[in-house]
Nucleic acid binder design. Structure first.
Lengths: 228, 228
DNA sequence: ACACAGTATTAGGCTGTCCTAAATTGGAGC
DNA sequence: GCTCCAATTTAGGACAGCCTAATACTGTGT
């Protein structure tokens, strides 16, 4: 049964669900109904209903009261959306004057409307980039993705100097604040102090010191310089 | 009542209806249910139903059994879609390697997904063009549009030389054929002969003679050279 | 003046996606 | 092992859009 479902085009809603579930299940962990509902700003019953339909179509597996996991096919569809989204973001920033804080919303709509042809043309125009403007890796057209291993800034030891690789946020205000501190992908950051509570770290970037709280500390994914 | 409806965003379907009705009513003539149904590939009852909803929202006026006409507001929304569509086509041809026969379908989907911001950025990148790749005029952002007066090729007198201004087709096969004859906007065409029946005209373009039938004769909109 | 052909509308249904309110279930803590 | 809370699912409903079949209208031709 599960094999028969391929190739009919998915609705916008379905694409959003698959992308959300993919994002909620690193390492193939199961995503819960309420997590999905929260991420998509829907009610939990709506999610239960859709999840049931998607599992009938072979895109995911649902163990009632336990959560959902994408099937191979669902994962493929989700990665396709992630590729689209990130390439569109990269294209808009590179060629149409978007800044990284405004690009997410536009890409969120376009990712459902572009053809595969257009996506690949944008990729070519960009020189087939491997990361988007936030440093997130762009899945290849064949669905492979290599997650680069990063450490949240909040886990970096005092005295270490690292490079910001990914900035895991989509809200414009947050991104603008982060950019105003100079914490864009590629920036070099030194952790100069750490508070014993609340994961507060003091960092130095571009000669300036700032204190970073728990949330931003997790949003900023870093790695040793010259690491991949 | 009619004024209260503004600014809620329109659905894809609604946008398609408005654009179709706009295209079917040159000079504010009324469009019939069956014309709309045919253009959108829907059943007439579906059109009646939607038309009813749209007239409740103040986007058009419906006189039962007589046809529909856009209101000011509906016309504005339709022109917005036409602008989007034509600018997207121009952008894709100019920057992403699309040819005029493949670009329509892509634009048809994108026009519903782009933001006003993106449309205006594409317009700037293009240098604010006034016509799209098919020679169709692009409405201004304020909704004004100047229709250039053209004559169908089938109405040009024998012996006259004219310039192709607009090519009013969207089907890829037809457009490819037209392009293969060199009949792109800007091409100079001389009518060398005309059959007494079926509107067949013999033309010369780029030193080659071709016979053009009734349909293509209407698709090819021409004007005297150096006419605007 | 009237019948009829063709067009348009009404009636009744289906699907996809969402919602709120009311059960149900699983696991934490006693 | 039982109780209870929070998470989840079921029940029941709304709305946008679409369809087919049945009915109503309009204008044409005689």
């Amino acid at each position: 049964m599960s094999a028969a479902a391929a190739s009919e085009s998915l609705t916008r809603s379905v694409e959003d669900y698959l992308k959300a579930i993919y994002q909620l299940s690193p390492e193939g962990r199961a995503a819960s109904t309420s997590e999905i509902a929260h991420l998509l700003a829907l009610s939990p019953p709506s999610v239960t209903g859709m999840v049931k339909r998607l599992s009938e179509h072979g895109l995911l597996e649902h163990i009632p009261y336990r959560g959902v996991q994408l099937t191979q096919e669902g994962r493929r569809a989700a990665l396709r959306m992630v590729r689209r989204h990130r390439l569109i973001e990269a294209y808009l920033v590179e060629f149409l004057g978007y800044s990284w804080d405004t690009v997410h919303e536009e890409a969120e709509r376009l990712e459902h409307a572009v053809s595969d042809t257009l996506v690949e043309r944008m990729a070519s125009a960009l020189g087939n980039p491997v990361v988007d403007p936030h440093g997130d890796p762009i899945p290849a057209a064949d669905g492979s993705i290599q997650e680069l291993s990063c450490t949240p800034l909040s886990d970096i030891a005092v005295g270490e100097t690292v490079e910001v690789h990914r900035v895991h946020a989509s809200e414009p205000e947050r991104l603008r604040y982060i950019a105003s501190l100079g914490l864009v992908p590629g920036a070099r950051v030194t952790v100069v102090d750490r508070q014993p509570f609340d994961d507060l770290v003091t960092i130095e970037v571009a000669g300036q010191q700032h204190v970073i709280g728990r949330e931003l500390g997790h949003v900023l994914q870093c790695a040793k310089t010259a690491d991949v």
